[in-house]
Structures are given as structure tokens and as C-alpha cells.
Design a protein around this nucleic acid. Structure first.
Length: 194
DNA sequence: GGGCCGATTGTT
DNA sequence: ACAATCGGCCCG
């Protein structure tokens, strides 16, 4: 049985972002709302973003928007995109290095995609910079049952148009909440491992 | 202040 | 294939 009121320690996040992204699949995202009700569900899709690559917000250094990516690991980085949606990330690696994992889908509700996840769970700028290591406080992540490697698919990330694409997206094979095109087998680019 | 662009999503 | 929609970022 999963205990929703524990959390990963900072050391879990203070590692290579791609490793953290893979290991976060199956972990539980938890959200306590204003009325004290709690939403929770397993992370079924995420993506890694690291400092020295054009596709990352951190590529051009710690701007006001992405400065929390350069802070200590285990904290939330929330950004606003396309004039409509917020997206939630977990900061990774050592402080001073800009990196994070974008949480794209949770296997709890009918919605899919990072924008819809934040919309449905009322996640926004009020969470930017808060710790995800305090169980019971607004937003946190706790360990779950880690799926076997045969259930975790690795593919290119969604929505990257300019930069060179990297196989840094992970998702639970066949899960209905996974967003975007199912790249492996959808005929464009190839799958990869990691 | 102006102009361009986007880690999205839903519709054509 | 494309529009909606506006904050962030760069330039001047």
C-alpha cells in the first residue's frame, strides 16, 4: 500500500535529470486543495530538460521566469505558456545547474497533457518555487510502485520545434492518460533508450 | 515600447 | 494544418 504522506528526499532529485525523469514514472503526485480535499495519482508521463540544450528554458541562463530551475532540487517550477496554460516541473540536479522534469500526465482523472493537468488540479504560479518535499502541504510527490522497465517507454519530447530532439520523454506503455502522439510507431522519428 | 515566439490544446 | 492568446525575452 502506498503511503501518500511521505516524500522523496532532496537527494532523489539531486541527480541527472534524465534518470530522475525515468524514476518518477509511477511516483505519486499529490495536491491538497483549499477545501482540504486531496487529489493524487501516479505520474504516467514526463520529460527531462537540462541546462545546455536550446529546447530548455534554462538554455539562456537564469532569467526571471526560469530562475527556480537554477535553485535547489525538489522544488516546483511553474511556467505559463501560449497565453493559456500553466505547466508543472520538478527542479533537479545540484543548485546552480538549471534543470527540471516536466510532469505531463497523471493517471488519476480523465485529462491528459501538462496544461490540462495544471488546470484540473488548480496548479499555477502560486506553486512556483514551493517545496515538493512537504507531505500534506499543497503539492508534493511521494514514492510509488516503480513499473518494470518493459512498461516504461522512452521517446522524443513533445512540442519541440527548433532544437535538436532528444529521447528524454518517458511514459507508461499503453496508459490512457498519456498525451500527445505515440511516437514509437507513429512513423516520424525513432524511439530510443536511456 | 515593439516584435517575435512558445516544454499547448482544440478545431478545421 | 492551423488558430487562439499573452507573458517572456531580446532589441533598441
Amino acid at each position: 500500500m502506498v503511503d501518500l504522506y511521505r516524500a522523496y528526499p532532496p537527494e532523489f532529485y539531486a541527480r541527472n535529470t534524465v534518470i530522475v525523469a525515468r524514476e518518477l514514472i509511477g511516483s505519486f503526485l499529490c495536491r491538497k486543495l483549499e477545501d482540504a480535499s486531496v487529489l493524487w495519482g501516479p505520474i504516467v508521463e514526463d520529460e527531462a530538460y537540462r541546462q545546455h540544450e536550446p529546447a530548455s528554458h534554462a538554455a539562456r541562463g537564469p532569467t526571471p521566469r526560469c530562475q527556480v530551475m537554477f535553485g535547489p532540487p525538489g522544488y516546483a517550477y511553474v511556467y505559463f505558456i501560449y497565453g493559456r496554460y500553466h505547466c508543472l516541473n520538478v527542479v533537479t540536479e545540484e543548485a546552480g545547474y538549471g534543470a527540471a522534469v516536466l510532469l505531463r500526465a497523471v493517471g488519476a482523472d480523465q485529462t491528459k497533457g501538462p496544461g490540462k493537468l495544471c488546470e484540473t488540479w488548480d496548479i499555477g504560479f502560486q506553486h512556483n518555487g514551493i517545496s515538493l518535499m512537504n507531505p500534506g502541504f499543497s503539492l508534493w510527490i511521494c514514492p510509488g510502485d516503480r513499473p518494470g522497465p518493459e512498461l516504461i517507454v522512452c521517446s522524443r519530447r513533445v512540442g519541440i520545434t527548433k532544437a535538436e530532439e532528444l529521447p528524454w520523454r518517458f511514459y507508461l506503455k499503453g496508459h490512457p492518460s498519456v498525451s500527445g502522439p505515440k511516437f514509437p510507431g507513429s512513423g516520424k522519428k525513432r524511439q530510443s533508450q536511456n
